[in-house]
Every structure is written in structure tokens, then in C-alpha cells.
């Protein structure tokens, strides 16, 4: 394998992982943009998303009387994949709204630390829900996405670089979600209400905006994003684990901060940056040092540019 191929391969691995991190980071940054709360439970909501998708992916084939989903005809497999994505998004959206109602709403006027601690509490509760639901082992998530080798099978390029349809899907799926979110926040009435709430809650309330509803909507969207990330993570990485939310959430939060929290594009760029740096570190240094490298980089970014790579966008945040 030549050096260019090597570099390309590491970049591709990093970008695919980064895209998943970015997906989770979008939810963090959306909630922070509206109510300035770091929702530490977001990582666990993401984990519940993977579990919900796993449930669909293992339960539906059993209706057809088969053990493994990939033995079913193509269109049914596609429907199962779509169904698991939708199930995860709905589950997590509702879950996030309930969490907001139970654990954050009452604390909205309290000092900033109170909802933060409450969020950590919620994350412990959700980890244990995951443990009760699926047990403590790392689980196998059935491989349902087509494993087409893009360079060799589609483009006819003879290279050792491995880039499958699955990788491509993971990379591009965040883009429409991000665009949709952007359009929603910028060009709809509800989006306008969200921006108004973010700018000045009291004034927005005086203008007739239902603050509770708007914030609940924000959590609904954030949860749906976490659910989508959870389902995609399962489909892409083929594993599910009750503790995956901690690592996933921490990396995503870091990505959000690195890119400029409250900034949707920043979350995407931050996620990509972390994915690529982690892949390079895994490849060039030692896998054990990857976390040190990632967080070391974060410290550097925060020292020299405390608002993150893109900065916080106060006019266009959400």
C-alpha cells in the first residue's frame, strides 16, 4: 500500500467516524443554542436510540420466522433499516421531551449548575435503563447495509483503499439532517420562535410565544437527532452497548465545543476534526494514546480560541 493510499484510508476512516460524532454533536449544540444547557444526558439518549433500533432490527425478522435479517429479500431489509431509524428517532424525541419536562423545566430559573447536575443524574438513570433493557454486554448489531466496495466495484479503480457504501452513507447522512435543521430554524414560524426564545426569553414570552412549548420542541428535535445518530451508529458500527453513550456523548460534546457551541456547522466541523485526529492517532501513535491526543487538542483550541473553531454564532445560532 502506497503512502497516498494510506493517508486517504486513514482520512476516510476518520471522516466516517467524525460524521457519527457530528450527528450527536448537533443535538448538544441545538439545545445549548436555545437554553444554554449542556444536556449531559444527550449521550445516553443516543445509546437508547441504538437500543431501540436494535430492538426493531431483531424483532421484525422474527415475525417472518427468520433469525437473521439479511436473509430476507432486499426491499424488506431496506424497510427494516428505515423502520429502525424512524423508531429510534421517535423513541428518543419523546424521551428527550419527557426528560426536559421532568428534570429541567423546574430548574430553568435556578442557578446554572442545578440543571447541569440534574442532567448528569438523568444520564445515570438512562444508563441503567439500558442495562436493564439489554444487559451489560457489548451486543452484535446485525449488518444490514450493503457492503459495496465503491472504489473497486463502482469506479473500477484498482486500489487497496477500502471505502464501502456503508461509509459513504454514514458520511452524507448528517448533511441533509443539518440542512433541514438549518432551514427549520431559519425559515419557519416555529424556528423563529426558537430564535426569539434564545435571544430573550422574557421578551419572547411577552410577544405571545409559548416558551414551554418552544423549549419542548427544541428537545424534541434534539432527541430525534440523537435517535438518528444512535440508529446510524448501530447500523454502521454493528455494535450496541449500554455504556456507549458516555464515550459517544463526551466526544460529541467536545466536538460541539471545539467547533463553537451553538453553531450547527461548527458541530459538524468539530466532529470531523475529532474523527480524523483520532484515526491518525490510532494509526500513527498507539490506540491507548488517542484520548490524550483528542483532549490535548481540545485544550489547545480552547486556549487560543475559546469560542471554538467557527466561534459562537449569536445571530444564527440554534
Amino acid at each position: 500500500m502506497q503512502i497516498q493510499e494510506e493517508v486517504l484510508q486513514v482520512l476516510l476512516i476518520g471522516i466516517a467516524n467524525g460524521a457519527i460524532i457530528a450527528l450527536i454533536a448537533l443535538g448538544y449544540t441545538l439545545v445549548y443554542g436555545i437554553i444554554e444547557l449542556i444536556n449531559f444526558a444527550h449521550g445516553e439518549v443516543f445509546m437508547i436510540g441504538t437500543m431501540a433500533a436494535l430492538t426493531i432490527v431483531t424483532w421484525v425478522p422474527s415475525l417472518f420466522g427468520v433469525k437473521q435479517a439479511f436473509t430476507l429479500p432486499g426491499p424488506i431489509v431496506a424497510l427494516i433499516v428505515l423502520g429502525s431509524l424512524v423508531a429510534a428517532m421517535v423513541t428518543c424525541a419523546l424521551l428527550n421531551v419527557v426528560v426536559e419536562r421532568v428534570a429541567y423545566r423546574r430548574l430553568r430559573a435556578a442557578p446554572k449548575l442545578a440543571p447541569l447536575i440534574s442532567a448528569i443524574g438523568v444520564s445515570f438513570v438512562l444508563v441503567n435503563v439500558g442495562l436493564l433493557w439489554k444487559g451489560p454486554s457489548q451486543l452484535n448489531f446485525p449488518d444490514l447495509l450493503p457492503q459495496v466496495d465503491i472504489f473497486r466495484d463502482w469506479l473500477g479503480i484498482n486500489t487497496l483503499v477500502l471505502f464501502t457504501f456503508k461509509d459513504l452513507l454514514a458520511i452524507v447522512i448528517a448533511v441533509p439532517l443539518m440542512l433541514g435543521l438549518h432551514l427549520f430554524v431559519q425559515h419557519t414560524r416555529l424556528g423563529k420562535a426558537m430564535r426569539a426564545t434564545a435571544q430573550d426569553r422574557d421578551a419572547a414570552s411577552m410577544m405571545g410565544i409559548d416558551i414551554n412549548l418552544t423549549i419542548a420542541l427544541t428537545f424534541l428535535l434534539g432527541g430525534a437527532l440523537a435517535g438518528a445518530a444512535g440508529a446510524i451508529n448501530g447500523l454502521y458500527n454493528n455494535s450496541a452497548w449500554a455504556f456507549q453513550g458516555f464515550r459517544g456523548g463526551l466526544y460529541a460534546f467536545t466536538a460541539a465545543v471545539m467547533g463553537g457551541i451553538g453553531n450547527l456547522r461548527g458541530a459538524y466541523i468539530g466532529g470531523m476534526a475529532i474523527g480524523i485526529v483520532a484515526a491518525i492517532s490510532d494509526r500513527v501513535i498507539d490506540a491507548r494514546w488517542t484520548q490524550v491526543v483528542v483532549f490535548g487538542l481540545l485544550i489547545l483550541v480552547l486556549i487560543f480560541k475559546p469560542t471554538g473553531i467557527l466561534g459562537e454564532e449569536t445571530t444564527e445560532r440554534a
Binding site: Q9, V10, Q244, R247, R283
Partner: peptide, 20 residues
Amino acid sequence: PESIDPKASDYRALAQKIRG
């Protein structure tokens, strides 16, 4: 002998290094 990170979400880059 190289230690893996047991909590990592994937080992693709490591696998890549091994292939190399």
C-alpha cells in the same frame, strides 16, 4: 504487544495499521 482501548467505538484505523 499493543493494548487496545476496550471502550472504543471502532478499531478500523488499528486494523488498517495491521494490514500495513
